[in-house]
Simulated scan of single mutants.
Amino acid sequence: MNITSIIAIYALVWIMTAFVSLPFGIKTHDEAGIAKIPGQADSAPANFQPGKLVMRASIIAAVLTGIYVLNYIYGWVGADTINLAEDLLAEPS
């Protein structure tokens, strides 16, 4: 596997991880007990910390990309392993 492929996979996994972990740990102003600014949406976050989000997404994406690359090298799980159609359509013995 080329290094450019690994970087591209890491970037895709990082984006997905960032979007999935975005709502965790966020509180609205009502939940945090902070006064809202006039005109502010009720759902606006009061404690958004982008640095924490970047670190969390980077660590998780690095681990997931590492597992993906190791699976590519050693072939632990392949298309033949996950053939659900064959398992579901097999006649019982």
Results as ranks from 00 to 15, higher is better:
1 M>C: 02
1 M>T: 08
2 N>M: 03
3 I>G: 02
4 T>H: 05
4 T>G: 01
5 S>Q: 10
5 S>G: 07
6 I>T: 12
6 I>S: 03
7 I>D: 00
7 I>K: 06
7 I>N: 00
10 Y>G: 00
11 A>F: 09
12 L>P: 00
13 V>N: 03
14 W>A: 12
15 I>D: 00
15 I>V: 15
18 A>D: 01
18 A>T: 12
20 V>T: 12
20 V>S: 05
21 S>F: 15
21 S>W: 11
21 S>Y: 14
22 L>Q: 04
24 F>I: 15
25 G>C: 08
25 G>P: 02
26 I>T: 09
26 I>W: 13
26 I>F: 11
27 K>D: 06
28 T>W: 07
29 H>W: 10
30 D>Q: 12
31 E>W: 02
33 G>F: 03
34 I>E: 12
34 I>C: 02
35 A>M: 09
35 A>Q: 13
37 I>L: 11
38 P>V: 11
38 P>K: 13
39 G>R: 10
39 G>Y: 11
40 Q>P: 08
40 Q>A: 06
42 D>E: 14
42 D>G: 15
44 A>W: 08
44 A>Q: 12
45 P>S: 11
45 P>E: 02
46 A>Y: 06
47 N>V: 08
47 N>A: 11
47 N>I: 03
48 F>G: 04
49 Q>P: 00
49 Q>F: 10
49 Q>M: 10
50 P>R: 00
52 K>I: 08
52 K>F: 13
53 L>G: 08
54 V>K: 04
54 V>Q: 06
54 V>T: 13
55 M>L: 15
55 M>E: 07
58 S>F: 10
58 S>A: 15
59 I>E: 02
61 A>V: 08
63 V>E: 02
65 T>V: 05
65 T>A: 05
65 T>W: 05
66 G>V: 06
66 G>E: 04
69 V>S: 00
71 N>A: 06
72 Y>T: 08
72 Y>C: 01
72 Y>I: 01
73 I>A: 05
73 I>K: 13
73 I>L: 10
75 G>T: 07
76 W>R: 05
77 V>S: 04
78 G>L: 01
79 A>Y: 09
79 A>H: 09
79 A>I: 11
79 A>V: 13
80 D>P: 00
81 T>M: 06
81 T>P: 00
82 I>Q: 06
83 N>E: 11
84 L>F: 15
85 A>Y: 12
85 A>I: 12
86 E>D: 13
86 E>A: 14
86 E>M: 07
87 D>S: 10
88 L>P: 00
88 L>F: 13
90 A>N: 04
93 S>H: 09
93 S>C: 00
93 S>E: 10
